[in-house]
Amino acid sequence: MSLIQLQEPTTQRPGQSVFFSIGFRPFFAVGSLLGAALMIVWVFIYRGQLQLPLVNMFSWHAHEMIYAYGIAIVAGFLLTAVRNWTGLDTARGPLLMALVLLWFLPRPLAIMLPPSLYLSVLDLAFIPCLALCLAIPMIKSRNWRNLLFIPILLAFFVCNLLYHLAIHQQLALAPSQPLLFALELLLMLITIIGARVMPMFTRNGTQGAVQPTGFAQQALWLLAAGASQLLLANVIDALLPKALLALAFSLLILYSWWGWQGKALWRNPMLWVLHLAYIGIAITYVLKAASYYALVPASLWIHSAGVLCVGLMTVGFMGRVSLGHSGRSLHCSRLMLASYVFMLAAVILRLAAGLHPTMPLWDSAALCWSLALLCFAVEFIPYLVSPRADGKAP
């Protein structure tokens, strides 16, 4: 059995709510809108034009980009993929609705109410519930190979727990530390999923003109390399080994990505957006290595990870999955292309702001990020709330 399969069941369930029939529909729809809104709210907070009961506005921004936006897209993908891997439902109907509410409710409450134990417990509850919805069908179907995603999700939970303990001053730890670890977990997740599906996407998207040389096991050795780099970088104090680990991981990603190349893919926007995001992971780890020696600001690799890797990969991946899983042809519309262009503009502007900090660059980068996600929402929410075009299961 392959690590990741993207197939669809073939029957329509009568009387089933379409929007809450499968995970990618609500999580991609609400996640894209929330991701756009949170960035605009952040601009007003950073400018001092909006006063909210936050312990630390920078930590709040980082936390929400990971645990509000990033985890929503991961949840939508995994809930959809696990159903395909196992042939069993993950969460749908009232259960999926409850899961979405559990993820969403801490977002507005965190900016309206001061930090409290109740808010922290509410925010922490989502990932274990998500992991349970994924683990049960995998265990029932003996889909042992894909259980590797459960410990990764639990690592996200531990990072979130450490963050909440830190903001409540129950732990002598800067809130940014577990958030940086969680950001790298998100990069590692993108790396291993990309290593598995992008060769297939590339071959199919070029009608076989490009024959990638990637193999299924690439996902596994990239997982091992990424986990080793992440763990060792957080226990080693010496700068040189930390920098070498980051560079080594970057080279492994480059080696994997190079085997998927061909001119034909660069003529297809739905492919090049994913390839640019994937090569962005290698760029990010080069910037991380450079930041250890103060050759570039540390914020540069962090925002490269957040905008170039997570932002660009998610707009590309959400569009492709939403088309394929709504029974529509894989055609890049003008709005889809606009979402890619806006996210690329956000990458350039935010990295430029890291090197030459100015308010216009920050504001412009934030605006482009929000416009990219709004373009996705305008194009795809009508598909996400409608039955599949081919009559198959929603």
Rank of each mutant, 00 (worst) to 15 (best):
D237F: 09
S116C: 01
G306S: 11
M138K: 14
A209R: 12
D237L: 12
Q177H: 09
Y285M: 15
L384C: 05
G262S: 12
Q49K: 09
T202I: 10
A377T: 02
F215Q: 09
C368D: 12
Y118P: 00
A305P: 01
H164K: 12
R92D: 03
A305R: 02
L265D: 03
P357I: 07
A155T: 08
N234I: 00
L52V: 03
Q7E: 14
L251I: 04
I152W: 14
V43D: 03
A298H: 03
A277R: 09
F58Y: 15
A166H: 09
A216M: 12
L179F: 10
A338D: 10
P128M: 14
Q211M: 00
V378A: 15
W103D: 02
L247S: 07
S59L: 06
A277E: 12
L371R: 01
T284I: 05
A75L: 09
L96P: 03
Q169D: 14
A195T: 06
G214C: 04
A345H: 01
Q207P: 00
P387D: 00
L247K: 05
G87D: 04
P115C: 08
V378S: 12
F104P: 09
A243T: 04
F28Y: 07
Q218N: 15
M57G: 00
Q16V: 04
A294W: 01
L374K: 07
L187E: 02
L117C: 10
L323M: 12
A372Y: 05
I152L: 15
F149M: 15
L180P: 00
G76S: 10
A174L: 11
L33G: 01
V197H: 11
M65L: 08
S32P: 05
L130D: 14
F27S: 03
L186D: 07
L183V: 09
G391M: 05
Y67A: 06
I150A: 13
L384K: 06
L231P: 10
A346N: 11
A81P: 04
A195R: 01
I381Q: 10
G23F: 01
L95C: 09
K263M: 14
H325F: 08
N56A: 15
F126Y: 04
W258Y: 11
L335N: 12
L3E: 03
N143K: 08
R47E: 11
V235P: 12
T358Y: 08
W103I: 00
M336R: 11
P115L: 06
R350P: 04
L88G: 02
G194C: 07
F24N: 04
T314H: 05
L232D: 13
F215C: 10
T11C: 02
W42I: 06
R350C: 01
I381R: 10
L52T: 04
A135V: 13
F342P: 03
L33S: 00
